[in-house]
Every structure is written in C-alpha cells, then in structure tokens.
Design a protein around this nucleic acid. Sequence first.
DNA 1: TCGAATTTGTGCGTATGTATC
DNA 2: GGATACATACGCACAAATTCG
Lengths: 252, 252
Amino acid sequence: MTELARPAYLRLADALRAEILSGERAPGSRMPSIAALQREYGVSEQPVRQALRVLTSEGLVEGRPGSGTYVLERPTPRRMGRGRYGAVGSPYAAEVRQQGAEPSWSFDSERTHATVGLANRLGVAVSDPLMQTRYLFRADDIPVQLSTSWEPMSVVGGTPVVLPENGPLGGVGVVERMAAIGILVTRVVEDVSARPALQTEARALGLPVGCTMLTIERTHWADGLAVETADIVMSADRYRLAYEIDVSPPRK
Amino acid sequence: MTELARPAYLRLADALRAEILSGERAPGSRMPSIAALQREYGVSEQPVRQALRVLTSEGLVEGRPGSGTYVLERPTPRRMGRGRYGAVGSPYAAEVRQQGAEPSWSFDSERTHATVGLANRLGVAVSDPLMQTRYLFRADDIPVQLSTSWEPMSVVGGTPVVLPENGPLGGVGVVERMAAIGILVTRVVEDVSARPALQTEARALGLPVGCTMLTIERTHWADGLAVETADIVMSADRYRLAYEIDVSPPRK
DNA sequence: TCGAATTTGTGCGTATGTATC
DNA sequence: GGATACATACGCACAAATTCG
C-alpha cells in the first residue's frame, strides 16, 4: 500500500506548495478543507493535516479554527536602508519618512549594570554602570520595531546626553549625540541574524507568536572605543535590510 | 478535563526545551524514549511525538529511527563577515578559512531567461538571456550555504568569464572576474531578510524543515549597471552576518 | 550470524474541544 | 443554535533502523 519513497504527506505538501508558489492559489484565498483534500487526493485525514503543518511551518498558509486554512499574504517587505550612517537627525525617522510614513517612538531610560554579554560588546568590565534605553518604534502609529540600547556611563555619565532622548539632542542619532560631547563615531558594526519571535515581542508588535524576526546587534565605535550597543528586532515578513557596500578596487 | 491554557504537547515541549537550554540535558545525550516520556509526564503518545516535532523544528533535537532522539550540538553561530568586498580571490573561501575551516563548493551553470523579478534586479528586459549558476558551499565538507547567481549575457556573453567557475578565473570573486573583462564593480548591495526553510533547502543543508534561514539578495553594481545578482541562503542558527559600516562625519 | 527487543517514522480511524459563520 | 472547520488527543498498526544478547 505505502507508495514509493516519499511519504504521502510530503507529496501532498509538494503539490500544494507548487500551487501556492505558482500563484494558482492566490494569497488570501482559502485552501480546500481537510475533508475536501482527503477526497481530492485520496489520502486519509492525518497525512492531509501533516502536509498542512509542513506548509504552516514554511510560513505559506495559516489555519484559522472554525474558518479554514488560508494562503498567507506575503507583503512585499519594506527595505530598511542600513549601511549609511552619519546623516543628521534620527536614522530611523529619516528611513521611515523616505517610505512615506510618519515615524514616532516611545522610550524608557534607566541605569543598569553590564552583564557578561554586554561587557564583551562594549569592552567594559562586568557590572560596570550603563544607561539603558528601551524603544518602541512606530510607523504611522503602528508598532514595527523594538530596540534596547546601552551606553557606558564611563562615556556618557555627567554629560548633557546621558539621557538619549532628553534635552535639545533628544531624538537625533547616536553619531550626532556623541559628536556633541566631542566623541567622533567612526564605525558602526551590525551583526544580523534571525529567530522566531518571543511572546513579549509578538505582543508588543502585534505579530503571531513564532513568526520570523530579524535581529541586529549594533555597536557604534569611536576608533577603538565602543560608545553604544543595541539589540534591534523587527519582523522579517515586513522588512528587509538593505546594506550598500562600496568596493575597494582590487589591487593588481 | 483538558487543561485550559496551553495544550499538553506545548507544555511538554516547554519543559523539555528548558531542560535542554539549561544544559541539564547535554548536547549529544539521548532523550528518554517516547514510551518513557509518556510514563514520565502522564500523557499519551501523540502529544509526546508532537512535542518532539516542535523541538526538532527548532533545531534542538534530532530523531534517529531505531536508536532514539538526541540533543543536537548547537554550534555557536559563526560571524560571516560581510560589508567588506574587493579582496582578491573568493570572498566565501577567505571567510571560511579565517574561521579555521576548509572551504569547498560545487556548482552547476546553465543558460536561462530573466523572470520579472530578475529583470527588475538586473535592469534588463523580461526573458533576456542570463547565465545562471547554482552553488552549494561547504565548510569542512559540511554543506552550509546555498546560492544561485545570475549574470546578464549582455554583460558576460562571449567573454572568457561567461562560465563563472571555469578557466583560470574559476573560483574567484565576482569583482575580480568582472575586472578581467574590463568592468569595474563599484558597489555591492545586500538585501537581508529571513524566513523558514523550505523542504529542499532543509534537505540540501541537513537542517530541520522550518528552521530559520537568513536570505540575502545580493547585487554587484558597476556604477549604474547591474552585473550580477544572487540569492544566498544559510541557517540563522549557524550564522550571523557582520556588516561593518564606515561613518561619514556629520556636517556642522 | 541470527533473531528478538527497542525505537523512531509514518499512516489510519476516531473522538472531543472550540472557534467561526 | 446548528453546521462547518481546524486543533488536539487517543489508540493502534506497520516499516525500517538500531541495539544487543
């Protein structure tokens, strides 16, 4: 009875995936019900369920209890320009405005102490004092990005910019703020990775739990001195990060 | 009867995940068998299987038929340096060697025609002829990265470098190859995003289906002319992308 | 070498809960 | 309220791989 190599649920998943990717099944449209797929493909319920589970884990469809299984929209993600720092003002605001949306954000600063990981990233000792600021960024009032930033008190303590979002230099970028206290940021390093969304993140951004998130560990450097580091997280479905890299000509 | 909040299989998955992440269950060690987990947690077979499936899709464990389910080693993700182009030779090989591993790859070139998406990326007309090359990259003979590259025949057709991996210039980077036919690559743009792994990718790279993959759409530019574009995909669990960005000083 | 026990992967049929319409 | 649909759960059967006496 059992067919050749590939199990039934994989063959069904392949068939349905092809239909979705080819556009034959449009985003937003309802898939046939499980019962209908059983009849249509001549397999029993469990293989159908498992095939749909595969497509769900691939982010192609979503089951809504009581309603049906739907092909997901894959919104063309917005390009979030990175790889260009040094503009005046908030890099986030500039990026969002360029996309024709209105940026806004809320924040919350407090003093903390360096964990092992943060100490490594900032080149300070464990439990050294830091200023931590949590951000929730919005575009057109919709939450789109979370970020937590840390700056060593040894750098910003006692200066007018110790609270990133206060005073005349609130709401501008790290580069400009540091320049105001005589620190010249020369380099930004961004470590990009991705992982499923945590529950708190999903709630804060109005996303389904477990959807794919892009994560950025960003550090601002003034020559050899790390002056700021941040964890940034946003939905991979909604954003792509655009890095523009100049090429140094090959030496002959 | 049934617990209110979370289904049994999720609670079991949470419990086992916590044990794994805390180190209580060491990498390489065997998990209790399905039958043992049933007894231990007082649930029936299906929830146990589903919990293990969840952990498998998270890349934490691996089932070996006839033997058991084993906790996987979780390699600390390697930093894959990006944001620096122009070095001589293959950028991939240089990066892997720097991490102390031995790079290798296989490939397969064929002529195709531009789809709508590729035509946009390369600035050519739909169905214009392209040279397509699929790559499977390995580090120490372990598959780690997939990539498909396209170059317009209007750029490389009739030149010695039309087949990227043939001739004296096989195995070097795009920048160097293009230089050999008088084209000066000035800029590389990388669009980074992430999504769950497709089945074919998971099979090719020996990863669980649905695990998180980093995707890069990379385009090489010679001033206004796109000379190459590629889709690159790798496991987000194993890699992080390091972009180094020079800051242009703010103007006063 | 052989065979029995164990273990996972796969597949089937069914029952119950709950959300949607 | 009733019909439909998906999510979870139970119990069972078989195949293939592994382990071990």
